[in-house]
Every structure is written in structure tokens, then in C-alpha cells.
Write a protein that binds this DNA or RNA. Structure first.
Length: 503
RNA sequence: GGUCCUAUCGUCUAGCCUGGUUCAGGACGCAUGGUUUUCAUCCAUGUAACCCGGGUUCAAAUCCCGGUAGGACCA
């Protein structure tokens, strides 16, 4: 560890803009970011956009937006620049060309003219023989004249790197020593031409030029590491330290994919997950603090994160745990804040318009919205759920299910009786406050049971029909909270509507 | 097919380096109970695991060896 002390810690995340920001990429970003923060290093964002066909600027934007939403900030990147730029691979072609020509000039790499059809046949043949599929070296020793001729004739070619047979060992910061036999790999393709590098080559050049000290990435890259190290060796680059973090797994323990639900950060954002919840959840997938603490803010993580507490095995993505953490963070927030966050969901559901008005034109005040949130905050696992839970506050008329209005053994007539009783009590209340409503109704419920001969302790005979009359739901906040929010007029109106529905 | 990685409750994990204090701790989930008109919150209780087989040792989840299983990569 001491050898790194003198060197500035520089880490990076290098996503390809070929799709929305993936949860796995986001977690890699988080681990890199935390490692940088903990060690007072720099965190760099680099966009690997050399695959022109699949790359799109909109995905670059999605990656940037997603990371920012999570609160992960970079010290250098395509949007803010930095001393080691540019930070998009398409702007770094000169570098790749330079090193590609160097390797070619030193005969450490060569042009290969084999067709993909030939290659495929050979590969099949090797595999049926039970051998490791690798390039057989057909073009490894073509004469300079042949190469020149082939190129001038425009024969399609790629650039291959001469892979020496070597046992290559590296110390993974999470897994310890890992050893590979490069003889099994064959000469790998590192570029399509001198202007079009492939992943393994570009990443080596970029990490070197950007002076990356630690490469922290998913374990799906372990097998790439020896190839990259051979390239570093050929180019006389000092290799960075490597740390391969476990993958996020689907419930069947395969690599997380769209098949099992959302994989992009923007989806989680849209579903109403809070960034602090997503961060907390991702951090705990594969890392633990070594204590029983489970709730961590980003800044706490920055202080406590450490690579040697990172797990070796993959971690199954458990959405119930995310929901729990998200619910926790929602409950922790102020009513005002949650109201603000819920507003867009209410609007896009059409319950409320841009001026906070409901269909009938009535405005829902800020205070009223906060009261709704106060009543429902504890029930939210995701912000989006506010729509289904609290829609009845924003409707002019409710539709009642007659059977839902009944409680226990009551029949329709008895239910009407109960509602009439509530109405009478409520209509006499002038000081319309939740506390008073609760006091009066609780007292009335007991009295009602005594008068009608219902079991004394079960207040449901009065409260259940009332609550359903006000909400049209089997599960909701208490009738006191709802009545308070609705106001006297609407409350009495709904009771009458319910009675009408039962008649 | 080859190479590499991994292996503790259903899931995330603590413990493993430095063998005994662990008939394995926490959290999510689930179940039950309490509070309660309902749901949720909150509180309490319960449920449930050391992949298998050898070895070392007085003693192994912990050390060694061998399997098995899963995954990733290579196209």
C-alpha cells in the first residue's frame, strides 16, 4: 500500500454511451468516487464513444444526468474538462494512432487480413478439438511487401498484438493474486485500423495518459486485465492497481439484465426512488461497513468506504430492500420536501394541473398538500405511489362499492344508519381541526356501539363506513385526517354521496 | 469447449486473516403478537444458513487438499 502513498490517487469511470446509465455502471462509479474521496484523490469521467454506430449523444447526457442526480461528482470530465483531456475517446484518436504506429513500427503488432469467415471456421475446429479458441497466427509473419500490397489493394484488415507466452500475475486489491497464461489467448485484435482502436487498447492508452492509479471495475473485466497488462508492458506503461468488484446479479444469479426489471438509473428516478436511497442501497450491494450500521448518506460513505470491505461474490439485486431503504428516506424527509417531490407524479397522473388545481377548478393549497403528505408519508415506498394512495383527495366525486362500505356484520341499512350518525356529529362541529374531529368521533363511536348494541370496543361500526365514504378505499389514512384535509363541506358531501349509493 | 472468479439464513451480509468467547450476529422479507376502524408506521417475538467430502487439531464456518455447483469472460 505504501507505494501508492506518494502517487496521487486517480480513478475513473469509463462508460460507453450506448444506452442509459446502467445500475451496475452507477455502482462502479460510486465505488470509484468513494475511493477517490476517501483517499483525497480525483475521480474522472471518461466517455468511451469509439463505437460510433451504437453511441449516441443522448446517452452521454443520460449518463451525466444520472450521475449528477445521484450526487456523484467528477473532478475531470467531458463537460468540465481537466488537465488530462479530452475526455471522450472520439477526441483522442491522435493518441491511439501514435501508440498503434509505435507498436506496428516495433513489430509488436501486425496487420491481419484473415476473413471473419475463415476465423470462425478455425475457431469451431479448435473448439471441437477441445482447445482454447485463439488466433492461429496465419498473418503473424507476412513480409512487408505482402502487407503493403494487401493494403494498397484495399483488403480488409485489422491490427493484432503479438501476445507472448507468459504467465502473468497481478494482485487484485479485492481478490488477491490472479494468474493467467497469455499463451492461451493468441494474438488479440487491438484495432480495426490506426484510427479505430478497440476496447482493450484504447483503455490502456487512456488510463496511462490520464495517469489513472487504480482501476476499479466490474469483475466481468478480470479476463481483460492480462491482455491490458501485456499491452502496457509492450508500451512501457506503468500498470495501475486493479480492483475488481462483484457484479450486481439478477434473482437467478445471472448478470443483471432488462429481463428482470429496470436496469437504468433514470427508470428508478422516474419510479420515485430517492437518490440517497439508491446510493445507500448500491453501496451495500457488495460492501459493508463492518458494523451493524445500515443507513449511510453519501458523505458518510465518503468517510467510511474501504476496498477491503468489498465482497468477492456477486450480489443479488433485491428490490424489496431498496423499497425499504427508500421508504425510510421518504419518512425522514420533511412533509414540505416530500410534497414537492410528489407533485410531478400527481400532475402527470392528471390529478392536478400546473397551477395546482383539480378538475373542478379548485386549488389545492401548499398547506393542504403537505397535510396529505403528512398523512401518507409513512405509507410510501416510492414517490409514485402517492397517486394511487391519495387520488381521492383530488376527485370531485367518488365511486362507491356498496359492500366495501359495510363493516363486520352490518347490512346496508345499518351502514346508512352509521353514516347518518357520523354526519350528525360532524355537522355540529364548527372548529374543524383534526384533533377535535378525532376526539368527537372516537367518543361518538363508543356511544354509537352502546346505543345500537354493537361490541363496545370495536369502533369500526362507526369509523369504517365513514372512512370508506370519505376515501372509497379499503385501506387509507384515518377518517380524522381525511376529514380535516377535505374540509367540512366536502366531508359532509361525501357522506351524503355514500348514503345515496347505499339507498 | 477453454480460462478465470466465487461459495454463511430466501436476499444483502458479520464472523474466516490471528481455530475455542458462535448449537453462527444484524438487516430486508416472511409469520405471529401489541397499538389500531383499515392499511402503513412504530414496538416485541419468531422463522431461517456455515455447498459436499476428506485431512490437520483436544477443538474448524474459520487452516490444508479434493470434489460439486453457480457465474463471468473468450465468439
Amino acid at each position: 500500500m505504501n507505494i501508492w502513498k506518494k502517487e496521487k490517487i486517480r480513478v475513473r469511470i469509463a462508460p460507453s454511451p450506448t444506452g442509459a446509465l446502467h445500475i451496475g455502471t452507477a455502482r462502479s462509479a460510486l465505488f470509484n468516487y468513494l475511493f477517490a474521496k476517501k483517499n483525497k484523490g480525483s475521480f474522472i469521467l471518461r466517455i468511451e464513444d469509439t463505437d460510433l454506430e451504437r453511441s449516441d449523444l443522448k446517452w452521454t447526457q443520460d449518463i451525466i444526468d444520472g450521475l449528477k442526480w445521484l450526487g456523484i461528482e467528477w473532478d475531470e470530465g467531458p463537460d468540465i474538462g481537466g488537465a488530462f483531456g479530452p475526455y471522450k475517446q472520439t477526441q483522442r484518436i491522435e493518441s491511439y494512432t501514435k501508440y498503434l504506429e509505435k507498436l506496428l513500427g516495433e513489430d509488436k503488432a501486425y496487420f491481419c487480413f484473415c476473413s471473419s469467415k475463415d476465423l470462425e471456421e478455425k475457431r469451431q475446429e479448435q473448439m471441437t478439438r477441445g482447445a482454447a479458441p485463439k488466433y492461429d497466427g496465419t498473418c503473424a509473419h507476412l513480409s512487408k511487401e505482402t502487407v503493403k500490397k494487401n493494403i494498397s489493394e484495399g483488403r480488409p484488415s485489422v491490427i493484432r498484438f503479438r501476445m507472448h507466452e507468459k504467465k502473468i500475475k497481478f494482485k487484485d486489491l479485492i481478490r488477491g493474486e490472479i494468474e493467467f497464461d497469455t499463451g492461451l489467448m493468441g494474438d488479440i485484435v487491438i484495432a480495426k485500423d490506426t484510427k479505430t482502436p478497440l476496447y482493450n487498447f484504447a483503455v490502456v492508452v487512456d488510463d496511462y495518459e490520464m495517469q489513472i492509479s487504480h482501476v476499479i471495475r466490474g469483475e466481468d473485466h478480470i479476463a481483460n486485465t492480462p491482455k491490458q497488462m501485456m499491452l502496457q508492458d509492450a508500451l512501457s506503461f506503468k500498470p495501475p492497481a486493479y480492483a475488481h468488484i462483484p457484479l450486481i446479479l439478477a434473482p437467478d444469479r445471472s448478470k443483471m439484465s432488462k429481463r428482470y426489471g429496470s436496469v437504468s438509473i433514470s427508470d428508478y428516478k422516474n419510479m420515485g426512488y430517492l437518490p440517497e436511497a439508491v446510493i445507500n442501497f448500491m453501496a451495500l450491494l457488495g460492501w459493508n461497513p463492518g458494523t451493524e450500521k445500515e443507513i449511510f448518506s453519501l458523505s458518510q460513505l465518503e468517510k467510511e468506504f474501504s476496498l477491503d470491505k468489498v465482497q468477492k461474490a456477486g450480489a443479488v439485486f433485491n428490490i424489496q430492500r431498496l423499497d425499504f431503504i427508500n421508504g425510510y428516506y421518504i419518512r425522514e424527509k420533511s412533509d414540505k420536501k416530500v410534497a414537492e417531490l410528489c407533485l410531478p407524479y400527481l400532475m402527470s397522473a392528471g390529478l392536478i394541473d400546473g397551477n395546482r388545481k383539480i378538475k373542478g377548478g379548485e386549488e389545492v393549497s401548499e398547506k393542504k398538500l403537505e397535510k396529505i403528505i403528512q398523512a401518507y408519508k409513512a405509507r410510501l415506498k416510492k414517490l409514485s405511489e402517492i397517486v394511487e394512495l391519495a387520488d381521492f383527495f383530488f376527485k370531485e366525486k367518488l365511486e362507491y362499492n356498496m359492500n366495501k362500505l359495510k363493516w363486520g356484520t352490518m347490512d346496508y341499512a345499518q351502514t346508512i344508519e352509521s353514516l347518518n350518525y357520523s354526519e350528525k356529529i360532524l355537522s355540529e362541529i364548527d372548529n374543524w381541526e383534526q384533533k377535535i374531529l378525532e376526539e368527537k368521533l372516537m367518543g361518538a363511536a363508543t356511544k354509537f356501539n352502546l346505543e345500537k348494541g354493537y361490541p363496545e370496543k370495536n369502533r369500526g361500526y362507526l369509523l369504517w363506513p365513514l372512512r370508506v365514504a370519505l376515501s372509497a378505499k379499503e385501506a387509507s389514512a384515518s377518517p380524522f385526517e381525511i376529514a380535516d384535509i377535505l374540509g367540512k363541506e366536502k366531508t359532509l358531501q361525501r357522506i351524503n354521496d355514500a348514503i345515496e349509493a347505499l339507498a
